[in-house]
Structures are given as structure tokens and as C-alpha cells.
Design a protein around this nucleic acid. Structure first.
Length: 351
DNA sequence: TCACATGATTTAGC
DNA sequence: GCTAAATCATGTGA
């Protein structure tokens, strides 16, 4: 390390058009015939600089050392500083401080909300519950899908953390730091022959870090995409119509045919039916809505079904009376009389 | 593949 | 907000 001005400094000694630093240096000399000799020197230096990349490493090293010791070095350095001062100004604005990366923040927030990054604590479960709520469905028949969603989310989470760990190992311990150090050393070395400001080195380091962090960004982006796909599939699956199980249909039919004169379950009855059938209250409402309209449209078609439930309910009632107990709702046969001639009246409701 | 069954959604009336 | 009625979309069995 010598005491030469390694890093770029401002040269304000502008005296002549063109390269005042060099001119100054030339003026400092004896001038006259000696000027020709200096021109020759400058030509030599420039030629050496231009051809330095064509030489072997050892040769180039030796040449660099020779250039550093050359008597024209300070003057040349000043010229380079001035040229750089002029050119860098025009690009400085474009490369100055960039705003914080909003996209990375968005990705981080999303991964956190979906329970992929951050503490596990059933984040996926919460997301699945939210998805279920959005789909408007609930009930134990959906729990299989729910756990499937959680399992797949957990898989994504695991892959994400494995990849992130790999990335951190590579970027923190090996490639990134090593590469950054290498570039910094290179720039410091080069700053002996060309003007490089500390800010430029800093900027170069930040460019390297940005490049490495773009890998992390890609990982986060693809993880987000995977979560989105999983979520949309989960929601789509829930939107699909699923027939109620046989037991649920029987419970609903029993209630319907035993209250045929007034097949309008109260809110409490709906809740009870929903509980028994493991479906939602709104599904119970839908079912009764559909059943009423379809029954009314085609009573004949439902006659057999009505008779069957009537017989079943009657048998159940007989059984209960034999044992000295009372039949309990909703299996109680309707008081409007006989299932063989059901009297459906759409506007009469029992609450 | 088709017809029918059935759960969900939409619209309009109250 | 509840319901009837129409309609849509999907499941199911022959």
C-alpha cells in the first residue's frame, strides 16, 4: 500500500480546456522541447493501459506496478478523475437510492398471513378456516378437505424453509460474502490506477446483494404462487355440490313428512337439524326450500316416499307408546292427519 | 353418454 | 330476512 491518492477525489484545478490536471502537470515542468518528451510519455502510458488486458496476469501485474510508479501517474489520475466527475454526474441520478422493495414486503406479508413464514401455530388452519368461511360452508364433512389443505400447506411451508435455509447457507457463508469481498478487493486494487469512490464500491456491493436477494425473491414469489393455487383449488372444491349423506337426508325427510302440513322449521329446529345432519343452517334452509317446491310441483311422485316415512314414523310412535314414553320432535307425526293425503299449505308456518 | 336427482344460487315479492 | 320459483351446476345410476 502506498500513499498515492487511491480513491477518487475532486480535482478542481481546472486551468485549460480538455484535461486541466494534465495541462497543469505539463505546465509545472520545464516546457519547450521537454513538452514533446512528455507527450511521448503520455502516449506510452495510454498505450500500456489500452493493451494491459491482452497481457498475462503476471505481465499485467508488473505493468500495473510500473504505471503506478510512473512520474505521469498523478497527472493521469487527475485527468481520469475529471472525466469521471463529468460522466458520473449524468448517471448518478438514475442510480441513487432506490425506495425500499415494496414487492418483497408484500410477499413477506402474504407468506406470514398464509402461515408459511413466521411461527407455525396453525396459521394454515386459520387460512383454511378463512377460506371455508369465504366459501360459505362448514360442517364436519368438510374436515377432510380442511386437513388436506393444512397438510399441503405444511408441505409448502417445509419446502420453503428448506430452500430458504439452503439459500441462506449459500448466500451468507459462501457465494455472496466471498464474491463481495472479491469484488471489493478488485475495486480497491483498481482504485490505484482509476478513480473509484467509496460510494461506488458501496453501490457495487449493494448491487451484488440485490442480485443475491433476487434469488430469495424468486423463492418467495413461487411459494406465494403455490399457496394461491392451493387456496383456489381448495375453494373451488368447496364450491362443488356434494350430496348430503343418506343419514342426513333421512333426518331431513323425516322432519319434512312429519310436518307436511307446515314444513317450515323454526330457527331452533333448523339449528337442531343442522347439528344432527352435520350441515349448516343455511343448507337446511336450502334443503327445505327445494323440498317444498319440488314436493308441491309433483306430489304424486313423492307419494311413495311420504308413505314410507309415514309408516316408519308410525312404527316408531307405536314402539315408543308401547314402552310408555312420548315421541319427541322432530319425529312426531303431524297433527294435520294422514300422510296418504298430505295437505300442503305454502303460507301456513309454525314457529 | 344421457336423463334425472339434488344442492346451491339468483330473483322477486312480501 | 324469509320464502317461492326459476335456474344453474354437479352428482349419480342405468
Amino acid at each position: 500500500m502506498d500513499d498515492q491518492p487511491r480513491l477518487m477525489h475532486s480535482s478542481h484545478g481546472v486551468g485549460m480546456a480538455g484535461h486541466p490536471g494534465l495541462a497543469q502537470h505539463m505546465q509545472d515542468g520545464t516546457g519547450g522541447a521537454d513538452g514533446e518528451g512528455r507527450k511521448q510519455d503520455i502516449g506510452d502510458i495510454l498505450q500500456q493501459i489500452m493493451t494491459i488486458t491482452d497481457q498475462s496476469l503476471d505481465e499485467a501485474q508488473a505493468r500495473k506496478h510500473a504505471l503506478n510508479c510512473h512520474r505521469m501517474k498523478p497527472a493521469l489520475f487527475n485527468v481520469l478523475c475529471e472525466i469521471k466527475e463529468k460522466t458520473v454526474l449524468s448517471i448518478r441520478g438514475a442510480q441513487e437510492e432506490e425506495p425500499p422493495d415494496a414487492q418483497l414486503m408484500r410477499l413477506d406479508n402474504m407468506l406470514l398471513a398464509e402461515g408459511v413464514s413466521g411461527p407455525e401455530k396453525g396459521g394454515g388452519s386459520a387460512a383454511a378456516a378463512a377460506a371455508a368461511a369465504a366459501a360459505g360452508g362448514a360442517g364436519s364433512d368438510n374436515s377432510a378437505e380442511h386437513s388436506d389443505y393444512r397438510a399441503k400447506l405444511s408441505q409448502i411451508r417445509q419446502i420453503y424453509h428448506t430452500e430458504l435455509e439452503k439459500y441462506e447457507q449459500v448466500s451468507e457463508q459462501m457465494a455472496c460474502n466471498e464474491f463481495t469481498t472479491h469484488v471489493m478487493n478488485l475495486l480497491r486494487e483498481q482504485s490505484r490506477t482509476r478513480p473509484i469512490s467509496p460510494k461506488e464500491i458501496e453501490r457495487m456491493v449493494s448491487i451484488i446483494h440485490r442480485k443475491f436477494s433476487s434469488i430469495q425473491m424468486q423463492l418467495k414469489q413461487s411459494t406465494c404462487e403455490a399457496v394461491m393455487i392451493l387456496r383456489s383449488r381448495f375453494l373451488d372444491a368447496r364450491r362443488k355440490r356434494r350430496n348430503f349423506n343418506k343419514q342426513a337426508t333421512e333426518i331431513l325427510n323425516e322432519y319434512f313428512y312429519s310436518h307436511l302440513s307446515n314444513p317450515y322449521p323454526s330457527e331452533e329446529a333448523k339449528e337442531e337439524l343442522a347439528k344432527k345432519c352435520s350441515i349448516t343452517v343455511s343448507q337446511v334452509s336450502n334443503w327445505f326450500g327445494n323440498k317444498r317446491i319440488r314436493y308441491k310441483k309433483n306430489i304424486g311422485k313423492f307419494q311413495e316416499e311420504a308413505n314410507m316415512y309415514a309408516a316408519r314414523t308410525a312404527a316408531s310412535a307405536t314402539n315408543v307408546s308401547t314402552h310408555g314414553s312420548q315421541a319427541n320432535s322432530p319425529s312426531t307425526p303431524n297433527s294435520a292427519g294422514g300422510y296418504s293425503s298430505p295437505c300442503y299449505q305454502s303460507d301456513r308456518r309454525i314457529q
